[in-house]
Amino acid sequence: MIHIETPRLRLRDWEDGDTDPFYSINSDPKVMEHFPSRLSTEESANLQKRIIEEMSEYGYLLYAVDLKETGQFIGFIGFHHATFPADFTPCIEIGWRLSPKAWGRGLATEGATACLTYGFNELGFTDVYSFTACTNQPSIRVMERLNFAFEKTFQHPNIAASHRLSEHVLYSTNVVRWTRT
């Protein structure tokens, strides 16, 4: 089922044929530079399974994304129910992970904009958060293009404090702020 369409993207439910290209994205060193490690085949399949389960549990998910022009799967954009221990969780997180072939074209911003409109208008969200490692400047730029407000930096509790990626930035928006943009 297609949930959201933009001029260039289809955000849809996951399909069996997404497993191999999703693994390619999750094992790519460029894509995973700002994550603690690349994912194995099994870890990638388990992540895909957990993403799909969120749809039945919460009514939203990190949607599989295709380029409309080619039908090619390029990654995910959408919502995740974040529950790690922090003063802002549980919360609705918006996130994206795209193939390097899709980078530099504004696709993450285009897809996330459509997701946020859908989330606030159709799903009734009041607040949405986004966070990433402080080193992940491309994702931080997307958050800023989306007019998210910088909240703070924090130590991600699931990453060892000594790890180079443990310090994260937290950004957020809400329905009032979003409807003004």
Score class of each variant (00 low, 15 high):
R177H: 05
N46E: 12
I140P: 08
E53Y: 11
S172M: 03
V65C: 15
N26M: 10
R38Y: 03
H168E: 00
F150L: 08
L165D: 03
I74L: 01
D13S: 07
S24H: 12
T109M: 04
L98V: 08
T89R: 07
T132W: 00
E151A: 05
S172W: 06
I74Q: 09
R10C: 11
F131Q: 01
V65W: 01
A114Q: 14
V128C: 06
C115R: 02
H81Q: 04
E5Y: 13
M32N: 01
P85R: 00
Y23D: 06
F84V: 05
R145K: 14
K30G: 00
Q137C: 05
T113F: 07
E42D: 06
R8N: 11
S24K: 15
G104I: 05
D28W: 02
V142L: 02
R145E: 08
S37I: 00
V176W: 07
H80W: 15
P100G: 10
Q155C: 12
H80V: 12
H81D: 14
N26F: 03
P7G: 10
A112C: 05
F73R: 08
D66S: 12
E42V: 15
Y118G: 04
F120P: 00
T153Q: 09
E33S: 09
I25H: 10
I159L: 00
H156E: 01
E53A: 14
V31S: 05
Y171V: 04
H34P: 00
G111L: 01
E43I: 00
E15T: 11
H168G: 01
G104R: 04
E151C: 05
L170R: 01
Q72A: 13
F150S: 11
N46V: 12
T70E: 13
S166H: 14
A86G: 01
M1A: 14
T126M: 09
L47N: 03
T153W: 02
L39P: 10
F88N: 01
F73S: 13
T19K: 06
A160N: 10
S37Y: 00
F73P: 11
D13R: 02
N136L: 00
E167T: 03
F22Q: 06
G59A: 12
E43G: 04
M32S: 03
N121H: 11
I2H: 09
T126F: 15
Y118F: 07
S44C: 11
I52N: 04
N121T: 13
M55L: 12
F79I: 02
V169Q: 04
A86C: 10
P21S: 01
L170G: 01
P29I: 11
G124R: 11
G119R: 07
I2V: 14
A86K: 02
V65G: 10
A149Y: 08
F84M: 14
